[in-house]
Amino acid sequence: MSTSLSPLIHLIDDDEAVRSSLALLISTVGLRVQAWADPATFMTTFDRDSIGAIVLDIRMPGISGLSVLERLMSQNVDQPVIMLTGHGTVEMCRRAFKSGATEFIEKPVNDEVLIEALQSAVRQHVKSRERHHIDRAARERYAQLSEREREVLALIVAGLTNKEIGRALDVSPRTVETHRANLFTKLEARTLAQLIRHYANLVDETTA
């Protein structure tokens, strides 16, 4: 998986000089850069699974950076997008953030501002991918539970003791104990805290 490599920054700007200089600047902090002159080529060919961020110039011939941004968002691209502009108006800035941009930086770019923004975007992306990954695994395990086990889990998450659960479900506390043991095995949780942290949301989702 591409996560094992260092993060990849996609840089889209139609100006060759701007592109190469920004690419050089970004590479000095050890981030990999892939530079694109043409937004359309970028849209069709870039690696959507890679960890990293997208740096997008607003003013480009043919297609505006804002519409590229809107298309990326509509295609559920999860890489954070940093917009670059020569003369940012408030309106443009508002539109960019509304469309889902993470940052809005004015040209000429101050190196520290850009690098700080990129690093924070990458961190954010890594975290969101991890969370997403954990979520998916948890969902799969949760799907294996029987109906009764889900009920027990919901009551555990609600903070009830075995006795109380038995009373609520009209079974003996021993039976509850068995379900509880099965739950911990199936959901691969070692402690009660882990169980609650990873599955509380899922329980809320399904019972809601």
Binding site: V18, S21, T28, G86, K107, V109, D111
Partner: peptide, 27 residues
């Protein structure tokens, strides 16, 4: 507006290049 863009582009490149150079030299 046109002038601002025309001048801003090379300025962006100048700034990015020099800043990159500073970083490369301080490695």
């Amino acid at each position: 507006a046109g002038m601002a863009h025309e001048i801003n582009q090379p300025l962006t490149a100048v700034l990015a290049n020099t800043q990159a150079a500073v970083r490369l030299l301080s490695d």
